[in-house]
Each structure stands twice: as C-alpha cells, then as structure tokens.
C-alpha cells in the first residue's frame, strides 16, 4: 500500500521536475480557457456534475488527465479530450488550476447530516483530504464540491469501477464502510456541501 503511494509520488515528482516554467500568459490561457465552459470560470464549477478543478493539487490533476488519456480511468468526454494535449501542456494546465482559488457555491444540504459528516470526516478522511490547509498530493479538495459529483465519484469507488483509484483510498473506504452504515457516506457528502458559499 505504501509502496504504491510512493510509486505514484516518484512518477509525479519526475513529471513536475520537467515542468515548463516558460509558458507565456497567452499560451497558458489558450490551453486552460478550453476547460471553462464545463468546469467553470478558472475551474470553479457552478454545474453540479463537473468537479471544481480550481486549486486542485498539480500531481492529482496530472494523474487524472493521464489516467483518462490512457483510458485506464473511466470517463465520458474527458478520455477523448485528454488525448488532445501533450504531457507538457497537461503540466501547464495543472500548474494554472492549482494556483486558482476555488470559489465555492452555496448548496442545499441537511445541517444535521453535515454535522455528523464532519465528525466522520475528521475520523476517517482528513488525513489525506485535509480541509484546513493543503490536501495530500494525490487527494482531491472535497470542500464545497457539488453533491451530485461527490455521489457519482463515491459510487465509482464503491463499485470498483475505477482501477486508477489509489489503494489507499480503496482501503480507507473499505475501513469506513466496515465501521459505519451506508447512509453515513451521505453524511460526508452533506458535510462537504456545507463548506460551500455562505
């Protein structure tokens, strides 16, 4: 399990070292502006199914794009779109979105479920998906992500539909489900939704 994690980190550290720091503003925007009509202005989505990619960790962005490009990670349009960009362009995009502040939009959530979710999050998830401060290198920002997106992704994890999910996440999820009710996953979703805009 740990070996797996370090393997990913090694790959990604290698990728980041090659990061082209020389892309000009127009070059960067020519790439990242193509994402916005689905992922929202500078990566902050107002749509409920497309995730926020603003402030996403670079390593995770690169891994997600490469996994979809290779077809290993199931996707709808992203498997096609990722193919259109070179490795270097993906790094440039990762760097740009990482630097954007996520604008989190208000969602309807259940306050009690969110409170329960918060406790569960602190027990099981916060080690990687840190809310205050940066997340683990390969862990997504969950704060304020839209509920339908979170549900869809969790369902993929539970159904083992995505072979690129890290073994860490798989084990953590199994541990969570073994110790809690199915419904409690929903509490987590309500908690993350509660961290959206005021």
């Amino acid at each position: 399990m740990l070996y797996q994690k370090y393997k990913y980190l090694a790959i990604i550290a290698g990728l980041l070292l090659n990061l082209s720091a020389n892309a000009s503003d127009p070059q960067i925007h020519m790439l990242v502006d193509t994402c916005i009509a689905c992922h929202g202005t500078d990566g902050s989505s107002v749509g409920s199914a497309t995730p926020n990619i603003a402030n996403m960790r670079e390593a995770l962005f690169i891994k997600a794009m490469q996994d979809m490009k290779s077809g290993e990670r199931p996707s709808t349009v992203m498997g096609v779109i990722a193919k259109g960009y070179t490795d270097n362009e993906i790094r440039i995009m990762a760097n740009f979105f990482n630097q954007q502040q996520a604008i989190l939009h208000r969602q309807n959530f259940d306050v009690q479920k969110a409170q329960k979710g918060r406790q569960l999050h602190n027990l099981y998830c916060n080690g990687c998906h840190t809310i205050e401060g940066p997340t683990d290198l390969l862990s997504n920002n969950l704060a304020g992500q839209q509920m339908p997106y979170l549900r869809h992704r969790l369902t993929e994890f539970i159904n083992d539909a995505d072979p690129t999910v890290s073994p860490l996440m798989k084990n953590a999820l199994k541990h969570f489900i073994d110790n809690n009710s199915q419904e409690s996953l929903d509490y987590l979703i309500h908690y993350y939704a509660s961290l959206g805009g005021k």
């Binding site: 916005i36 009509a37 689905c38 992922h39 929202g40 202005t41 989505s45 107002v46 749509g47 409920s48 199914a49 497309t50 709808t76 349009v77 339908p148 869809h152």
Partner: peptide, 13 residues
C-alpha cells in the same frame, strides 16, 4: 447530468 452541468457553466460564463 454532465450536459446540464455544461449548460450551467457555459451560461454562467
């Protein structure tokens, strides 16, 4: 769901 998500983001933009 993705179609509606695209719609919300593109009209927001």
């Amino acid at each position: 769901a993705y179609a509606h998500s695209l719609y919300d983001n593109i009209t927001h933009e």
